[in-house]
């Protein structure tokens, strides 16, 4: 092979991104090519020196200015933000709900009701208006929940993660939401989705059924990443009931050795 063909490998070599096969190929070439050997050595040396060039720290002033800017921005936005903004945001995403027309209908009702509310009560504050707005807020809240459930069924993994992330906006999770999250935790084919779901569920451990679901899930997970993550969660929760599940997991054949150690450690820390 010609020397130029090794150009990409040179970069991979100096920043240590080569696979063993690629390293091997390059090593075989430089063993017989003094030019490339010399060049690679020179570049490596320069790369190392570059690594010692310091980057200065920003001054404290930068943070002060940033927060001043953020506060000003917040004040200006707060004045405009209202339920309307929230609804507008939902409307802009209406295409995501296409399979669920009843929801679009719900949303249309909310929009009409809020509109009517403004017409009737104008801008003046009144108890009735407050009551009505509260009722509407709860409807919007329900919509968020329905939207989350819809997103969890999306074929794209990043959309499903988005669905999971909506959980943090839902104030009280009902059984339907919890069941959907637990099902995702145990069955989603994508490990990133499962990890996000685990993260979302750790914020809901106030619900006993979430805790139980997590414990049951321990033996369901086959990815080392998930097994380690769940072990961490159980430690954080100091959930002693999980020990039996972990012991069960240890019996599984083909369990990653790193995971095995971590699980054993977790068990000792929990007992």
């Amino acid at each position: 092979m010609k020397c130029e063909l090794y150009e990409e490998l040179f970069t991979g070599w100096i920043n240590k991104e080569l696979s063993p096969e690629e390293s091997g190929a390059l090593e075989r070439h430089i063993a017989g090519c003094a030019n490339c050997r010399e060049e690679l050595q020179g570049l490596q040396q320069m790369w190392d020196t570059m690594g010692q060039i310091e980057t200065p720290e920003p001054s404290a002033n930068m943070g002060v200015k940033f927060y001043a800017m953020l506060n000003t921005y917040k004040e200006s936005v707060n004045e405009q933000r209202s339920l309307w903004a929230d609804i507008k945001y939902q409307v802009s995403r209406i295409w995501e709900w296409q399979p669920r027309w009843p929801m679009a209908y719900n949303l249309a009702m909310v929009v009409i009701l809020v509109g009517a509310g403004y017409l009737f009560f104008g801008k003046s504050k009144s108890d009735d208006q407050d009551k009505q707005l509260k009722a509407l807020s709860s409807q919007v809240h329900e919509l968020k929940q329905t939207m989350m459930l819809a997103l969890l069924e999306n074929p794209s993994a990043s959309e499903r993660i988005r669905g999971v992330s909506y959980t943090s906006e839902i104030k009280h999770a009902d059984k339907q939401v919890i069941d959907a999250l637990l099902a995702t935790l145990n069955n989603d084919p994508n490990v990133n989705v499962r990890l996000s779901t685990l993260d979302a569920l750790t914020h809901l451990t106030g619900y006993p059924e979430v805790r139980e679901g997590l414990i049951k899930s321990i033996v369901e997970q086959d990815s080392p990443l998930m097994q380690l993550a769940i072990a961490d969660v159980m430690l954080k929760l100091q959930e002693k009931r999980s020990v039996t599940s972990f012991k069960e997991l240890l019996k599984q054949k083909g369990l990653d050795n790193g995971v095995r150690d971590k699980i054993k450690q977790t068990i000792t820390q929990l007992i």
Binding site: E7, E8, L9, F10, T11, G12, I14, N15, E39, G42, L43, M46, W47
Partner: peptide
């Protein structure tokens, strides 16, 4: 990614000759 690698290499060569 291939283009990035080639460009990094060329930039390193250029840097060396300047240096």
């Amino acid at each position: 990614e291939g283009t990035v690698k080639v460009r990094i290499h060329r930039a390193m060569q250029e840097l060396k000759s300047i240096y």
